[in-house]
Amino acid sequence: MKIQLAILGLGQIGSSVGMALAKYKENIHRVGHDKSRKAVNFAKENDVVDKITLTLSNAVKDADIILLALPLQEIQPVLEHIALDLKEGALVIDTAPLKVPVLGWIEETLPQRANYVGFTPVIKAAYLEEWKYGPEVAHADLFENSLMGLVSGRKTTEKSINMAINFAQLLGATPYFSDAAEMDGLMSTTHLLPQLLAASLLKISLDSPGWREARKFAGKIYSQLTNSFGQDDLPGELASAVINNQENTIRLINDLIRSLIDIRDLTETSDQEKLDEIFTKLQQGRDLWLADRRENRWIETPKIDVSRPGILSQLLGFRGPKTTPEDK
């Protein structure tokens, strides 16, 4: 039996998934769809998918797994479009940064016969300093030695959950289960807040009377801090994330304001020693995080029971990581 996978969205995430599964093409048939001609051409030229379809309906009608590798603001309209085309028992997976709103849309839109598991991909540490976006920075090993956050729907079957676990493992990732609200809180700090900081910096800069001259001297640091706005879909996705995640957004903005006020107060009192101490501790904290991130060294990460392989692992002969005496 051959598994059919529909990849809707052939940007960095969707294309990387397709490339990672190329070695399983005898068992997994990859169907792709994207409205971008550039993304479609990349997929054709780089063995991302086995087939391209021009319509969403044709992409999903025979699919066992539907991967929504789409910006947050596109998830709901796409779900509404494909809902009636899903086959019995189909598994829908999304990679959007927020899960609470997606779960709501899933429950409103999907028929009872479909299942849902949300993915929160974490990219391989080796690619953290790739500043471009889109399919041209897709990699077959993009998810290797990293976590894959999993959030399941309330009515998702055990079979579909096992399939999602196997799917994440085929990509080289370690499944990490969380509930939707917790995952949104985590992503608000690590994904949403940096984008809000970039937006704030750009707004302050562009609204400044001196920007006409200052822009001539904006360099590497400015470019890196505002780099997230190099994504074509970022404005719409960020606006959607803020509106659909208001409580976390407001909390983080208030935390940011308090942090800046602390720095302002120390600046006003000319307390250079205290500022140096704070900035040094922050630098050390970043160094520690980056070292752990590169090694995927998260001792608190819960182990996933993969003693009973699901349909994907049975089909491909994939049993997950072997256990050692220390694991038991």
Rank of each mutant, 00 (worst) to 15 (best):
S188C: 06
A168I: 14
L197W: 11
L197R: 05
V40P: 03
L282S: 08
E107A: 13
D292V: 05
Y116S: 02
M148W: 13
D232K: 09
S240M: 11
K25S: 08
G219V: 15
R251L: 02
L79G: 09
V122D: 10
L234Q: 14
D262F: 04
A20R: 05
I263R: 02
H33E: 03
K23C: 02
D50H: 07
L315P: 05
H81D: 05
R212I: 12
I278A: 05
K124E: 12
I311C: 03
L10F: 00
Q284Y: 11
D85S: 15
M163F: 03
D233H: 14
T301M: 01
A291Y: 09
Q231T: 14
K303C: 08
L67D: 14
E26N: 11
N254V: 15
L234P: 06
E108L: 12
L56P: 05
D62L: 10
M163K: 07
T109V: 10
A198T: 10
K303Y: 03
T267C: 00
Q112I: 14
I82K: 02
I75W: 07
S240L: 06
I106A: 01
I261K: 01
Y176P: 03
N244R: 12
Y127D: 01
P71Y: 01
L54D: 09
A90G: 14
F279N: 08
G89D: 15
A180E: 01
L192H: 04
Q12D: 08
I82T: 04
G14C: 00
D141I: 14
N27A: 10
P111D: 04
S270E: 04
R297K: 14
Q283N: 03
T301D: 00
K159A: 12
L225C: 13
L21S: 08
L275Q: 04
